[in-house]
């Protein structure tokens, strides 16, 4: 009978060395995705690489002008410790699973799973975050917008691990909204994040669960960047923003909703979150 090797490095260097040696090892932190996959027998990894013993992974701090969030920081700590500086990410973190899941689940794990429905992805896209990945070969930084390559696929090489997420602190209002078919503990039918940079008059967006990967709505961002930021948005602009967000998605029919519903709902979420964020600008 085959068995699963359980690798439990105590330092980041050990972890990278282990991953270099065992490229078939599946990293596990909170286990809230990995254990579900194992229970459903969707994956049979030859080895598990436990990252919970590496203290520095669960730390966050500043890295120049950006916040550096270790891959092992839990959703709960994001909400409690970083909610003020990263309100969009914290709002998304509040919608993740149950309290127990938020205690264990991590943003690094969310990125590693690379599900199109990952709750943290839209606010990270909207905030123009960068993912720091590492291997024994070295470290590289990948913009979140380039990180995902398909459903549950990313640019991670077989010997690489996610080390940290680098996120600029909010420079203006951020909002996040997620549609699910019950009022809590639900996988996103679709979600939307918006981030406004007051000084630069720049806009970030992120769409979840409505395309093969989390995506930005670039045309919608450009529309807003060209608007007058010192006054209320004209209603036609808000409407157009919603349309452009919906157009940026490429949803499918699945067990959770129809593609048509997702598109319509995204337009509504986009308009509402834009109005809330714009109101905060003033």
């Amino acid at each position: 009978m085959s068995t699963v090797d359980f690798l439990a490095p105590r330092t980041w260097e050990e972890a990278l060395a282990a991953k270099a040696e065992r490229r078939d090892a599946l990293p596990i932190a909170g286990g809230t995705d990995v254990m579900v996959e194992l229970n459903f027998d969707r994956r049979r990894p030859a080895a598990l690489l436990d990252l919970t013993r590496i203290g520095e992974l669960a730390e966050w701090g500043s890295d120049g002008s950006v916040l550096r969030i270790g891959a092992g920081v839990s959703y709960r700590r994001l909400i409690e410790e970083l909610g003020g500086r990263l309100p969009g990410l914290a709002m998304a973190a509040r919608t993740v699973g149950s309290a127990q899941i938020r205690n264990r689940g991590t943003v690094g794990g969310n990125l590693g799973s690379a599900s199109p429905a990952g709750d943290a992805h839209p606010p990270l896209l909207a905030a123009a975050a960068t993912v720091q990945v590492a291997s024994v070969r070295g470290t590289r930084r990948v913009p979140v917008a380039e990180f995902f390559t398909g459903p549950k696929r990313s640019v991670l090489a077989p010997d690489e691990l996610i080390e940290a997420i680098l996120v600029p602190p909010a420079a203006g209002p951020q909002q996040f909204a997620k549609v699910g078919t019950r009022n809590a503990m639900v996988i996103a039918v679709c979600s939307f994040a918006i981030s406004l940079d007051r000084e630069r008059q720049a806009v970030g967006t992120g769409i979840g669960s409505a395309a093969p990967t989390p995506v930005r709505a670039l045309a919608a961002e450009q529309l807003l960047a060209a608007a007058r930021w010192d006054r209320p948005l004209p209603e036609p602009t808000v409407e157009k923003f919603g349309e452009l967000v919906a157009a940026a998605a490429s949803p499918i029919d699945d067990v959770r909703a129809t593609a048509a519903y997702r598109r319509r709902a995204l337009a509504v979420l986009a308009r509402r979150t834009l109005r809330w964020a714009w109101e905060e600008l003033r």
Binding site: M91, R94, T95, Q175, F176, A177, K178, V179, G180, R182, N183, A184, V186, S191, V268, L269, R272, W276
Partner: peptide
């Protein structure tokens, strides 16, 4: 908002 339709998803502040 948690007690409105959409619950913790923050989908409405009363709109609609």
């Amino acid at each position: 908002p948690r007690l409105l339709p959409g619950g913790v998803g923050n989908t409405t502040h009363g709109e609609g």
